[in-house]
Design a protein around this nucleic acid. Structure first.
Length: 877
RNA sequence: GCGGGCGUGGUGGAACGGUAGACACAAGCGACUUAAAAUCGCUAGAGCGUAGCUCGUGCGGGUUCGACUCCCGCCGCCCGCACCA
């Protein structure tokens, strides 16, 4: 009898699929197509177990769809531009291109042994000139279609290295290399006009039925549609050209609670004041310190500078409000100016407390004044109305939900008692009728700045000419390739900044319009651009235009997209925009405006951390391979017990990583594939454990053993055949349903159960062989190599990968009787076995006759009797 | 700080508002063996007065005949926050 030997069989069957071209996708209008795609990896050089899980999920779908008669497209590529390659060149010399392609070779070599049913002939990397040249063509088409523009953006500026930093390079407000205090600085950049599509991108979310609701909600919040009022405060004393300050607010109902005006340090008025006032300039400089992230802005200490200027309240010209320059207001949002209502906004309240500004209350809790209700205010007043928030809760603003009803004491429109939403609408209407501003619908979504001051990215194909201005490159000149060296000299990556900027022979060129000497744009594109259309490129990866319409029309859309939740907003939103832009420019059909029909977000693979402490109490981490287990505890070789911290995100610094290559070498690819799917639902994290992997391997060996016994068995057909086949059909049904609904762990649990049944069954050899072949088929999406081996062993013909999926016989699924639990007051106390269609009153009779029920009832009748047919009986006593 | 999610035995997890703990891991006991490994079988949420009863799905409330599931308020952890990919 042969033993389970993954190393042998896995290589063998991979070669067989290659030879048969099982996974090579060809357009065939006669067959329904199915496009399954996993988010492609960044070529770090090593695949990790999380990749294994991600691609195994996609492969299960791909192989299952192939078996159900689909023409499957399942491609793979690399998201190959980005900072790590430049960082590597900076840290240890070499060239980003060599580093990246070397890593890609390594990763492909690590992925192939996993036996994924991928069409490798379509592979590309986004750093291939063939790919990014087409991306440049797309950029030019977008530019011509009015989908691109130039304007200012705020960036992180390192004043010592004199370079722009990525957010992740800003640590606690300081540059990662120089340690210098980072400044926010404005720069002219290219933008995709994604905000023109805000409404459409928001509305179309409703059509994405097969996307997780949480992703749609996150996108919806990100786009952030709001209804508000745009109006201006007139200045008491005009300052230069400024005689008013334009603000936007989503809470115009709190206008009578205004306490101050805040403007961004980059507001034109602030800039004007800065010019001839050293104190203002010093404050603005300080206010511009720190990173650009929303998180940094929100968490930073709120600072303000009283300009001494004042404005008039639009409804009471005698009421003057001070104008502050504030560090938490960004010029990129709204008008770069706000009015503060401290009583009903936490940030404004913090600010008002700090600068001792009044906090007029606009509305109160309906229960205010009720002794049992919250006390919201006390203290002084303006015009007989309360001003000071209750000193006891004085640092907490009263911010109820907008749908909650509150009592307006400083309202100016609508009822005294109304919801925030109603009050906002009433306030907008009232303001409009009195000529104070206008109602405006605004979106939080900003345009997508795509310029990056870096080398390792797709060059932006434009030229700056003194005479003609900004000129698009001619498509004939594409691709504009990144220079590998500097006329024979290696590019120096050790200097901060963009090497393209200091590369004269690459930068200098002829103007595509007038032919005069001109200069190339040295910025490259955000790597999100690369990943915003790769799915379309996979449909015709070698086409000499961005897409081939016949191929794109056939293969698009992606039927099932699989990736991490961390991409829930940006990558997916940008891709949705790109698909629309590509449709407008003729590169994709109408139906592809939403390019991903279904989305699945998978969880991470985690691993316990093994830790001891050094003399100073600091943690010391240990690799899993160095830890031995006894009685559920872990020990180092010298006998020291380690502390086990379960389920932590894998990270090299914590040493809680497992290497897929080692797993494959030890157990084989099928074990790795089986285990990463087996223990947790796919959308949740799964914890990798050595014992779990071992057990998965033992199970596969067991299936192999059972199958080889069955292959040689000669038991005649008998009375047990029917029960086995019935169980087989139920298993087909359950496993299929599991795969269809991404319940891979449930499918696997069912396969375990069926294996147990098969092993114990006394059925005849023929029935058992049939059941075992079906078992092999049902396992084949997860363990394709073992399944091929079993299939061949059990007399199957051809490749199991190319067999039609087994179908459950509905007649074999029905049961004649059901077990009904009987509850007394909601607690299970007994159960009865009844015919499936027994009438309700019969069930009631049987239930009441039960001992447990009789005992609970005593002599009285039940208070209530609930019978859910086929499900449950509940007796209330 | 803001937005989104998750929380069930010693462990991973299962459970259309209807028998909480399927299926596994770890553990214990047994069979086989000279022995071990492998394999096979059995036990197993906690507690108690053990034919049975009580408690139990992060914490506190609520809705319901019935709540892991729905609602409200907390706590903890994870993801995202526009130049990480």
């Amino acid at each position: 009898m042969s033993r389970y030997s993954p190393a042998e069989i896995e290589a063998k069957w991979q070669a067989a699929w290659d030879a048969a071209g099982t996974f090579t996708a060809r357009r065939d209008p006669g067959k329904p197509k199915y496009y399954v795609l996993e988010m492609f990896p960044y070529p770090s050089g090593r695949i990790h177990i999380g990749h294994v899980r991600n691609y195994t999920m996609g492969d299960v779908i791909a192989r299952y769809k192939l078996a159900t008669g689909h023409n499957v497209l399942h491609p793979m590529g690399f998201d190959a531009f980005g900072m790590p390659a430049e960082n590597a060149a900076m840290a240890s010399g070499g060239h980003p291109r060599d580093w990246t392609y070397g890593n890609i070779d390594d990763m492909v070599a690590q992925m192939k042994p996993l036996g994924f049913g991928l069409d490798w002939s379509r592979m590309f990397a986004t750093c291939d000139p063939e790919y990014y040249g087409q991306q440049q063509a797309l950029f030019l088409d977008f530019l011509q279609a009015g989908l691109v523009e130039r304007k200012n953006a705020t960036v992180n500026w390192d004043p010592v290295d004199r370079t722009v930093l990525a957010n992740e390079q800003v640590i606690d407000g300081k540059g990662w290399r120089s340690g210098a205090e980072v400044e926010r600085r404005e720069l002219t950049q290219w933008f995709f006009k994604i905000s023109d599509f805000s409404e459409e991108l928001l509305e179309a979310l409703d059509t994405l039925d097969d996307w997780p609701a949480k992703v749609r909600l996150m996108q919806s919040n990100w786009i952030g549609k709001s209804r508000g009022l745009q109006f201006s405060f007139s200045m008491v004393a005009p300052q230069g050209a400024h005689d008013r300050i334009e603000v936007y607010t989503t809470r115009p109902d709190t206008l009578m609670g205004a306490s101050f005006i805040g403007i961004s340090p980059d507001h034109p008025l602030a800039k004007e004041l800065e010019r001839d006032n050293a104190e203002v300039a010093a404050f603005c400089k300080q206010a511009r310190q720190g990173g650009t992230t929303e998180e940094a802005l929100e968490k930073a200490e709120k600072l303000g500078f009283d300009t001494g200027l004042t404005v008039r309240h639009p409804f009471d010209t005698a009421w003057e409000l001070p104008v502050y320059i504030a560090n938490f207001i960004l010029m990129d949002y709204g008008t770069g100016a706000i009015f503060g209502c401290p009583a009903h906004d936490q940030r404004d309240l913090d600010f008002a407390r700090k600068y001792d500004l009044p906090t007029p209350l606009v509305f109160t809790d309906l229960r205010a004044g009720d002794p049992a209700g919250p006390e919201i205010y006390s203290g002084g007043s303006i015009g007989g109305l309360p001003v000071t928030v209750n000193p006891e809760t004085g640092d907490k603003a009263f911010v109820p939900g907008k749908s909650e009803r509150v009592r307006y004491i400083r309202g100016f429109a609508g009822d005294e008692v109304q919801t925030g939403d109603e009050a906002v609408e009433a306030a907008i209407a009232a303001c409009e009728s009195q000529g104070v501003g206008r109602g405006v619908t605004q979106f939080r979504l900003r345009d997508w700045g795509l310029s990056r001051q870096r080398y390792w990215g797709c060059p932006i194909p434009v030229v700056h000419c003194e005479a003609c201005g900004v000129v698009p490159e001619r498509k004939d000149n594409l691709p504009i390739e990144l220079p590998y060296d500097e006329d024979g000299t290696p590019i120096d990556f050790s200097v901060p900044g963009n090497p393209l900027d200091r590369h004269p022979s690459w930068r200098d060129c002829a103007c595509p319009a007038c032919g005069a000497p001109a200069q190339r744009e040295t910025d490259t594109m955000d790597t999100f651009v690369d990943s915003s259309w790769y799915f379309a490129r996979f449909t015709a990866p070698r086409a000499t235009t961005p897409t081939d319409r016949a191929e794109a029309d056939y293969w698009m859309n992606v039927d099932q997209y699989i990736g991490g939740i961390e991409h829930a907003i940006l990558h997916l939103l940008y891709s949705r925009f790109f698909a629309r832009a590509m449709h407008i420019t003729g590169h994709l059909p109408e139906k592809s405006k939403e390019p991903f029909n279904a989305l699945f977000t998978q969880g991470m693979v985690t691993h316990a951390i093994f830790q001891t402490r050094d003399a100073g109490g600091r943690p010391v981490y240990h690799y899993p391979a160095d830890v031995a287990f006894r009685d559920g505890k872990g020990f180092l070789e010298d006998g020291t017990e380690v502390e086990i911290i379960p389920s932590a995100k894998m990270s090299k610094s914590k040493k809680n990583v497992v290497d897929p290559e080692r797993i494959i070498a030890t157990y084989g690819a099928d074990t790795a594939r089986w285990f990463v799917l087996s223990d947790s639902p796919p959308e949740r994290d799964v914890e990798w454990t050595a014992s779990g992997a071992e057990a998965a391997n033992r199970h596969l060996a067991r299936v192999h053993r059972i199958a080889s016994d069955i292959a040689q068995a000669d038991t005649p057909a008998n009375a047990d055949d029917d029960a086995l086949l019935k169980e087989m059909h139920k298993t087909i049904f359950d496993v299929t349903q599991g795969i269809d609904s991404f319940g891979f762990n449930a499918s696997i649990a069912r396969l375990y159960a069926f294996t147990n049944v098969l092993q114990k069954s006394k059925a005849g050899a023929e029935a058992k062989r049939r059941a075992a072949r079906v078992l092999a088929q049902l396992m084949s999406p997860m363990t394709p190599h073992l399944s091929e081996e079993l299939w061949a062993m059990l007399g199957g013909t051809g490749l199991i990968a190319e067999q039609p999926w087994p179908e459950a016989d509905a007649a074999m699924l029905v049961e004649d009787t059901v077990t009904m639990p009987i509850q007394i007051n909601g607690k299970r106390r007994a159960e009865i076995e009844v015919p499936k269609d027994l009438p309700k009153d019969e069930v009631e009779k049987l239930a009441l006759a039960e001992d447990a029920v009789q005992r609970a009832l005593g002599d009285g009748p039940p208070k209530k009797l609930i019978v859910v047919p086929g499900r449950i009986v509940n007796v209330v006593v």
